[in-house]
Design a protein around this nucleic acid. Structure first.
Lengths: 177, 177
DNA sequence: CAAATTTAGTTGAAAACTGTACTATTCATG
DNA sequence: CATGAATAGTACAGTTTTCAACTAAATTTG
């Protein structure tokens, strides 16, 4: 019987299916048994990231934002009035410079950040959070937190620490490109 | 001094900056101290997923594939000749049905899968892996594994188990939408 | 210090993905 | 068994992101 799966592939049946599938494929491809863990970890990480993304998207849509523009706004909030340039933002967020230009265009158009030419370097553009932007952040952050509540409560503080520690080790091993 | 960051945000300075930034923002927004862990875990998960994606993309590009089409091919490989339908693939991979149609179009055009109407249900389309597709998988899998080697070797088997266990708990908590 | 190189930002075209709407078919139920 | 609801697939339009090419300014270097 072909058991049905709910939309977001995060039911326990869906997860079991992934594990079975990975094990089967790894064996047929003659991969070492440990590779099952590697691939499973990768898949689950990707699915979790997608889950975060989707939850955030839903929560942010009503504010006219998406996860990327939100993260960009947070960079400004962190900067505490210090101006940021598009390329800084691009490297920090991991977005392309091209995309960052667009996102900033949008945020400027929405009135959440202001843009003016840099005094020091005339190639550069200085961007700052507007009052409206800061207000938006203060208003939206609690809503996001609320949406993420189930995920937050699914694991213990100790598990969170462990997760962070393991992810850091993996991240440092990523080949830079 | 404003320290420069390498392209993919996975240097140890970049990670520290994320942690500092999260802590600072959380405090200024009056969020509880634990939320720093929550947000950090989320960010690192997302960055890791992006890292996987980028590594896969590079490795797959030379075969004319992308991470999504690769995952789709793997579903067929797992199915062992059993025909699959676009909507099955969509639910399993988490892609939209629309997108899956397009991906399958592409894979058919590349000759890696074959498409023919289902005998049982005339609404359906049956898709199967072609010999060329199976050959492509056998040829590509080891290359992918090679590209992911640094990540695989960054953590112990025990840590992998732990990572998987924690991610599973979180995944099950994701609100379905 | 002039020429070559690099960097910042942007633009337009292309690619990847999503959302809506539609047709054809099957399933459910009165 | 006829009719309404649900499902499979896809086309089309819109969004988001990337790629390639370009301008302008700064930096390097011969």
């Amino acid at each position: 019987m072909n058991s049905k799966i709910v939309h977001l592939s995060c039911s326990s049946t869906a997860i079991s299916q992934i594990e079975e599938g990975v094990a089967k494929v790894a064996e047929r491809l003659g991969m070492p048994p440990q590779s099952v863990m590697d691939i499973t970890a990768m898949r689950l990480t990707q699915i979790m990231a997608r889950g975060y993304h989707d939850v955030m998207s839903v929560a942010l849509k009503e504010q006219g934002l998406n996860p990327t523009s939100w993260m960009t706004l947070m960079m400004f909030f962190k900067a505490e009035g210090e101006p940021l340039n598009p390329s800084d933002l691009a490297t920090i967020t991991g977005e392309s410079r091209t995309n960052m230009t667009r996102i900033c265009d949008e945020l400027v158009a929405q009135g959440y950040i202001t843009r003016f030419p840099s005094a020091q370097d005339r190639r550069r553009v200085d961007l700052k959070l507007s009052d409206a932007g800061a207000e938006l952040i203060r208003r939206t952050a609690p809503k996001l937190r609320e949406h993420l509540k189930p995920v937050r409560e699914a694991i213990t503080d100790e598990e969170k620490q462990t997760l962070i520690r393991i992810l850091k080790k993996q991240l440092l091993a990523l080949p830079d490109m």
